[in-house]
Structures are given as C-alpha cells and as structure tokens.
Design a protein around this nucleic acid. Structure first.
Lengths: 151, 151
DNA sequence: TACAGATGGTTACAGGTGTAACTGTCCATT
DNA sequence: AATGGACAGTTACACCTGTAACCATCTGTA
C-alpha cells in the first residue's frame, strides 16, 4: 500500500532523462534552431558519413517518419544533401554538406563539453549511472516504436 | 572527433527511460485504457489522497494543462471526483472515487510486480542505476517545463 | 472600499508524433 | 516476361503537448 510515484523507476528515469536532455538541448535549440530529431540525424551522419534514412533510424532509434522529417529539415538548412543509389532507386544516400560538417563539428564540441560538465556535476554518480544504463541496454529488449514518448 | 550518439548520455538516458516506461505502460494501456499522464495523476491521488490540480502537477512533474486534461479524463472514467474548497473558490479538491481507489490498488500491484521484474532483470545494475538517478536528482536543477519530451 | 497584481484552472492554437495508407521500386517465383 | 510480396521513403490523419491568452477569484495596498 505504500507506493510513491517519486520512487518508481519508470518515473524517475523519465525525469532524469528530461533534465539531462533539456539542459543539453537548450544549448543548440536557440543557437542552431535545431530540434532533437535533427540533432540525432546530424549526429548519425556526422559520425558515420554517408547513410540511408533507414540506417539513420536504426542508429538513432527514430521512427521512419521522424527521420523523414528531420532529413527534410536538415536539407532545407543546406546541411545535408541527398544522392541516389546506383542500382536501387528506392534508396537515398544522405550526406552532410560542408556547412553541415561545420555545424556537426561545433555540436560535438558542445557535446564533449557537456559530458565534462556531467562528469563534474555527478561525480561518482556518473559511473553508477552508466553501469545501470548498460544493464538496461543489455537486458531490456527494445520495444517496437509506439506512440510518442508520452502516453 | 570520435563521437557516437549511442554513447552520449542524454541519448542513452532517453532510450533507457523509453524502454522501461513502455514496458510498464503496455501493462495498463490496454487493460485500463489509461494514458501515462492519467496514471501519474491517479498515482499521486492514490498515494496522497485529496489534492489540488496544482499539487498533482508539482508532485508528478506535469505541466498544468496536462494535469487539467488528465483530471478530466479520470473524471469521465468516474475514477475521480472534484469538490470545491470552502473559502477559496478558485481551488478544486480532487479525490479518487471508490472505483478509482480500486483501480489504484490494482495499479500499485502491477507497479510492485514490475519493480520485482526489474530487480530480477537488472540485478546489480538496478542499484547502480538508482545511485546514478539520485545523483541527477540531487545535482541537476529541474528546468521549467518546455515543449514536449521531444524536441 | 477600490484596484492592481497574483493565482487556480481551462482552452484556442500551432506544432510535433505515430499509424496507416500510399507511391515507386526491387526481387523471387512462375 | 509477368506478377505478388517486400522494402525505402513520404504523407494524410488523428491525437497529444506546451504557449499564451483567458476567466474567475483572491490578496495586499492604498
């Protein structure tokens, strides 16, 4: 009978994720007018180079419609260009433009600085957190994409 | 220059939160046709008894519009009743009906079982995770509510 | 008493999201 | 060669969410 939402794992994890993500998102939202899906797609392309939309989705755990929209947004910012596949005309290869690569470089600098800041703020807590996350990644299967982070 | 989204803390934390939450949400979504905000409000009311909408928001970290909608949904399910405050007519006191309390009882049983399951699946990882979450809760200020968990 | 600002709660609106349906293309089997 | 199913990617639709504006009420100050 003694139950408190504040101690319930799913709730705490969501809260923590929100705090950590928003703090970082605040650093690029205004500066680059970039949304979280766009940042994820940019990060995937920046670190792996040429990819297809499907690959981006697999790498960054985004639904294909979300990838489709993020890709279009990046394209409109001229940070990404599409090119067609020889042989399979369904596939589009996506790649960052020089401008996109520059933004990516600035973003990973922000990301590294943020990781430093987390390490400083969380101390040993960070090591524990990473061990816990590893356990989840290893033992909880990834459910198929469902409606929203909410609901 | 070596950056991988899969190892970036905000991303990993979001992924983990999503896995853990969806797995639990799957247990009540269909059964009670309840959304996550409704579950949070139900949990707050069930464990603290009579509360105002503002208090629910503070306890469960939900935006006031989200609380407003969740409360209406619970009311339509006849799981919650409103009553007016003597003295301050802006305030509404919210309380679970007997039916609401029954559902709450069933939900906390599910929640406890889920915690057991997590403990079994995550092993020592759970203790580490909790230590990490505690560090975040203690050291990262809660940002004011911003747009969606996404973006 | 009067009034300006704060507060509890709701709602119109704009924007984001997944589902399902769709288009175009490929491939295995016939 | 033809055809049925799989697959890459886009889009119409319904739904959810926060912002901002709003209403009603309260409170402090003059």
């Amino acid at each position: 009978m003694d139950f408190r939402l504040e101690t319930f794992l799913p709730y705490r994890l969501n809260q923590a994720a929100e705090r950590v993500s928003q703090r970082f998102a605040a650093q690029y939202r205004g500066r680059y007018r970039m949304t979280r899906p766009e940042w994820r797609a940019l990060a995937a392309l920046g670190s792996y180079g040429r990819m297809t939309a499907t690959e981006i989705g697999a790498n960054s755990s985004m639904h294909k419609t979300k990838v489709s929209r993020a890709v279009r947004a990046l394209e409109e910012k001229r940070w990404l260009k599409r090119s067609e596949d020889e042989g399979d005309r369904r596939v589009e290869h996506l790649e960052l433009t020089p401008a996109g690569k520059r933004i990516y470089g600035e973003m990973i600098a922000l990301a590294k600085a943020y990781e430093q800041e987390m390490a400083r703020l969380l101390g040993d807590g960070l090591r524990h957190l990473e061990a816990g996350l590893a356990a989840i990644e290893a033992n909880l299967p990834m459910q198929p994409q469902r409606r929203g982070p909410e609901d």
